[in-house]
Design a protein around this nucleic acid. Structure first.
Lengths: 166, 166
DNA sequence: TTAATAACCTACTAAATTAGTTGGTTATAT
DNA sequence: ATATAACCAACTAATTTAGTAGGTTATTAA
């Protein structure tokens, strides 16, 4: 099994969507700015999330992505599965052919571990994450950070406008 | 986090040791033959296992490796930790600096998952694995496979001896 | 109608990791 | 003396990660 930034990014981005998509679609550049994830990399991840119909997209200005189901119907395990191959801990994908066609000595142990991880991640929905206090605190900080960056952009824009107007 | 053949090989090899070291040290070539793991790769893994004092070695003919503690005092988590970096699912090793010095949106989720995996693998000792029926069955098959290979080697040896004796 | 926005798509890449291989040396039992 | 088996260092092919680069297409708003 493998759980790297790939799967973590996907879950983080989906949670960002869950937190911000109440007022219409959320663009990947917004998610990129808030979560510090490269835009092009997000595009690749969302191509996979869309294939697994976890999100739907709206093109053009004001467009972006929306969750394709209720937050309580999307689970962390599904997100990780969508971008990673799986949270499977066996080397044989449960096929029991790990040692040249036969079962390896520790096959059942890795099956048990896989079940353990899958059960855990299948029990956590985006809704559950949104409700968590630690998540809300981080989200608030991120939102206020973004507002400050926007303000400084506005100031830059004011300077540019002033310069252009002579 | 990462659980690849590296960690799985280490646990498999340690379990092989637990199953066969009652009559003295077990050589890596024996483990290699029984478990189908490359000898040189095993050497690299056992260098790490020895550094973490999970095994002790005996050099020279008849030598090999022994568990350095009782089977009930060696846990799967320790073995995986010894060869892999860890079973940590966070990107920041729990340091909470996952997003450019600050906590990322999903940090606490990965902490919980890490705890879950760690608790599970810390609860399973080599003793527990040795007792499992599925493990005993695979081990029996492996031992009888090896005996057959040894017999055919003996036959080869007989042929060679016969040829040499004219 | 045109410009801006944002999804969508393909191909490339540096760095790291895995799962080894090769070719030794050192220590010890027979 | 010889065989065994640990110990050690350096190299490698293949794969994966986490991107970058450079587009095309659809849609909205001025």
């Amino acid at each position: 099994m493998r759980l790297t930034t790939k799967g973590r990014y996907a879950v983080t981005a989906m949670l960002d969507l869950a937190l911000h998509s109440d007022k219409g679609p959320v663009s990947l550049s917004d998610i990129s700015a808030r979560q510090g994830i490269s835009l092009s990399y997000l595009e690749q991840l969302f191509a996979k999330l869309r294939k697994q119909s976890l999100v739907s997209s709206v093109r053009g200005p004001g467009g972006g992505y929306l969750l394709s189901r209720e937050r309580c119907d999307i689970f962390v395990a599904q997100i990780v599965d969508a971008v990673n191959e799986s949270v499977d801990a066996t080397g044989c994908r449960g096929r029991s052919d790990c040692q040249g066609g036969t079962t390896c000595l520790t096959h059942h142990l890795w099956c048990d571990l896989s079940d353990q991880i899958h059960d855990f991640l299948s029990g956590i929905s985006l809704e559950k994450l949104v409700q968590r206090k630690d998540v809300r605190l981080v989200a608030e900080r991120q939102d206020s950070d973004i507002r400050q960056i926007d303000q400084s952009h506005d100031k830059d824009q004011d300077k540019i406008s002033a310069a252009l107007l002579g």
